[in-house]
Design a protein around this nucleic acid. Structure first.
Length: 484
RNA sequence: CGGGACGUGGCGCAGCCCGGUAGCGCGCCUGAAUGGGGUUCAGGAGGUCGCGGGUUCGAAUCCCGCCGUCCCGACCA
C-alpha cells in the first residue's frame, strides 16, 4: 500500500517515522482542508474500541450521554471571562448562513461549556436533580497554527463530560474519579501508563479552578498530555447562572466539572508502542486480534488450508479474527501489511502445518524473541491464542512502565544537569520548584521543557529537594518534560 | 504571523535554468505463471502540470498576483 518499502527508523527521525507510520497503517489520510485529517477505517475502528471502553466506564459510574449543538452564539462564549480569553483566539466563527450575514456570529465549539451550561441550567431546579452527570461524544474545532495527525488537528473527535454538583467536595471527588478512570483506561487498555497530577495555575483550563492531567511519555521521551479533568468551581455556574434550590429552600450555585480525552489518544498509542515496522496495537484496542494467512501452492492445497483456516476461525470465540484469503498477494506481502497495521498475532497455515496438524503463530512483538514464532497444535490454538493476547497486553504495559521509570529522573537540583538530561535523553524530570511562573518561562526559553504537572501522591517522590532548579526555595515538586 | 523549501496521474518524484504540447518508480486493471518474508513476465488504464492573469506563433517551463502544503520559529488543555 505504501510507496516506500521501509519506514524511516524511529532513531533517525521520530517525527518523520510518526507521519509515515500513521499513513502506512492506514489510520489517517490527507484532506483537502488545512490541518484536518481523515480517519480511515482502521483508525476509526480503534477509536470505536476506545469509545466503547470509556463509555462503559462512564456509564458504570452513573454518567449519561447527551448531545448539544455544534454552534455557540458568540455572546454565550463571552460570558465567562477567562474562558473566552483562553479560547477566542483559536475559534472558527460562522458569520454567514443561507447567503445572509448572521445577526450574531456563531462560534464552532472549541469545547462546549458555553452552550451546555445555559441549557443544563434549565434542567437543574432542585438539589434532587443533583448530581447531574452528562457526557457527550462530539467533534470540536480549534484553529491551531501547526497541526499533526491525531496530536493536533483543527477538528478532532473527543468526549467531554460536564457535571453539576451540590458541593465543592463532590465536584472535586468527581474530578478525581474521572482522572482515575482516564488513568485506568490508559494503563489497562492502551498500555500507556501516564503520570498523573495537577496543572500549574497558568497552565490550567481556561475557566477552571484546578486542572488535573495525565501525561504519558512517548518513545522519544517527549510527554503527551493525554487527558484532562477540570474542577470548575462555581465559575461557570456564576457566568451562566446555574442555581438549584436546597432542601432548606435556599438558592445556591452549582459546582461543576468538565473533562475530556480525544483522538489524540491514538497518536499516543502509536508513539508509545510503534516500531520500525509500523504500529503495534495492544490487543484490547486491536480491531483485528488475529489475522490468518493461508499459504498454498496447488489448488488442492488451497482448498485444504482454507478449510483449516475457516475451522480455526470458527473456534476462536471472543477473538477478532480476519482471514486474509486474497490470492493476489504473496504471503510475505501480507505479513508486512498486517504488521504495519499492528495486528497482534498472525497465524500462518500452509501445507507443512497441515502435515504436522499445527498452525504457525507469529506474535507482532515479543520481549522474548524466541517466542515470536511458534508451532502450535491446531487443537490447542483456540485456547493458546486468547491467552497469548492477554500476555501481550500485559507485556506491553510492563514494558511501557519500565520505559517510563528508566526515563524518569528524580531529585534533580543542578540546572546544568537538568539541561544535560533534556538535551540528551529527555524524559520526566522531577524537581523541587519555587512556584514562579517566570522560573518556568526561563527554563522553557533555555530548554523547551515545561512543567507538565505537580505529581499526585501516586507519583510524588518520597522527599523532593529543598531547592528549585533556579536556586530558590522549593515550595512543591513538579515534573518537567519536553511536550507535544 | 516571521524565515526557508515546495505544489506535475492515487502516492513519491524527474522535466523548468536554455519555452515546442509530459516522463519515471510504486500502486491500479487484464492475462499467465508464482505462492513458508515485500513474486515475475506480458499487455493496459489513468494527468485542467495548485488557481488566476500576463508575455509569446506556442507556457509545466518566463513574469505578476493569489491559494495551499511541509520544515524552523512564534503560538498551542
Amino acid at each position: 500500500m505504501a510507496e516506500d518499502k521501509a519506514l524511516t527508523p524511529r532513531s533517525e527521525d521520530f517525527s518523520a517515522w510518526y507521519n509515515e507510520v500513521v499513513q502506512r497503517a492506514e489510520l489517517t489520510g490527507h484532506s483537502p482542508v488545512r490541518g484536518c485529517m481523515v480517519i480511515r477505517p482502521h483508525g476509526y475502528a480503534i477509536w470505536e474500541l476506545v469509545q466503547a471502553a470509556l463509555d462503559g466506564m462512564f456509564k458504570e459510574t452513573g454518567h449519561e450521554n447527551a448531545y448539544f449543538p455544534l454552534f455557540i452564539p458568540e455572546s454565550l462564549l463571552k460570558k465567562e471571562a477567562e474562558h473566552v480569553e483562553g479560547f477566542a483566539p483559536e475559534t472558527a466563527l460562522v458569520t454567514h448562513g443561507g447567503g445572509k450575514v448572521l445577526e450574531e456570529p456563531l462560534v464552532v465549539r472549541p469545547t462546549s461549556e458555553a452552550i451546555i451550561w445555559p441549557i443544563m441550567a434549565n434542567w437543574i431546579q432542585s438539589y434532587r436533580d443533583l448530581p447531574m452527570l452528562i457526557n457527550q461524544w462530539a467533534n470540536v474545532v480549534r484553529w491551531e497554527m501547526r497541526t499533526r495527525p491525531f496530536l493536533r488537528t483543527l477538528e478532532f473527535l473527543w468526549q467531554e463530560g460536564h457535571t453539576a454538583h451540590a458541593t465543592e467536595q463532590e465536584a472535586e471527588a468527581e474530578t478525581l474519579l474521572i482522572l482515575g478512570i482516564y488513568r485506568k483506561f490508559m494503563e489497562d487498555w492502551m498500555a500507556m501508563p501516564p503520570v498523573t497530577g495537577m496543572k500549574t495555575e497558568w497552565d490550567k483550563f481556561a475557566g477552571a479552578v484546578r486542572t488535573y492531567a495525565c501525561e504519558a511519555l512517548m518513545q522519544d521521551n517527549w510527554a503527551l498530555q493525554a487527558g484532562t479533568s477540570h474542577n470548575l468551581g462555581q465559575k461557570f455556574a456564576r457566568a451562566f447562572d446555574v442555581k438549584y434550590q436546597t432542601e432548606e429552600g435556599e438558592h445556591e450555585y452549582i459546582w461543576s466539572t468538565s473533562w475530556g480525552v480525544s483522538t489524540r489518544l491514538l497518536g499516543g498509542l502509536v508513539m508509545t508502542h510503534g516500531d520500525d515496522l509500523g504500529v503495534v496495537l495492544p490487543p484490547k484496542l486491536a480491531p483485528i486480534h488475529v489475522v490468518i494467512v493461508p499459504i498454498w501452492k496447488s489448488d488442492a492445497q488451497r482448498t485444504d488450508v482454507l478449510e483449516a483456516s475457516a475451522r480455526l476461525k470458527g473456534r476462536l470465540e471472543g477473538v477478532r479474527v480476519r482471514l486474509d484469503d486474497r490470492d493476489t498477494l504473496n504471503p510475505g506481502a501480507k505479513y508486512y501489511e498486517w504488521e504495519g497495521k499492528g495486528v497482534p498475532i498472525r497465524v500462518e497455515i500452509g501445507p507443512k502445518d497441515l502435515d504436522r496438524q499445527q498452525v504457525t503463530v507469529v506474535r507482532r512483538f515479543a520481549v522474548d524473541t524466541k517466542k515470536r514464532k511458534l508451532g502450535v497444535a491446531e487443537t490447542d490454538a483456540p485456547t493458546v491464542l486468547p491467552k497469548m493476547l492477554d500476555e501481550m497486553q500485559q507485556e506491553l504495559l510492563e514494558a511501557a512502565i519500565r520505559r517510563r521509570e528508566e526515563n524518569s529522573y528524580r531529585g534533580v537540583t543542578d540546572y546544568e544537569e537538568f539541561k544535560r538530561i533534556i538535551a540528551t535523553t529527555g524524559g520526566f524530570i522531577f524537581t523541587g520548584y519555587c512556584g514562579a511562573e517566570e522560573c518556568e518561562a526561563r527554563v522553557k526559553e533555555d530548554t523547551k521543557a515545561s512543567v507538565r504537572l505537580i505529581p499526585d501522591e501516586d507519583f510524588a517522590s518520597e522527599r523532593y529537594p529543598e531547592r528549585c532548579i533556579c536556586g530558590g526555595k522549593a515550595l512543591q515538586e513538579v515534573v518537567w518534560a519536553r511536550a507535544y
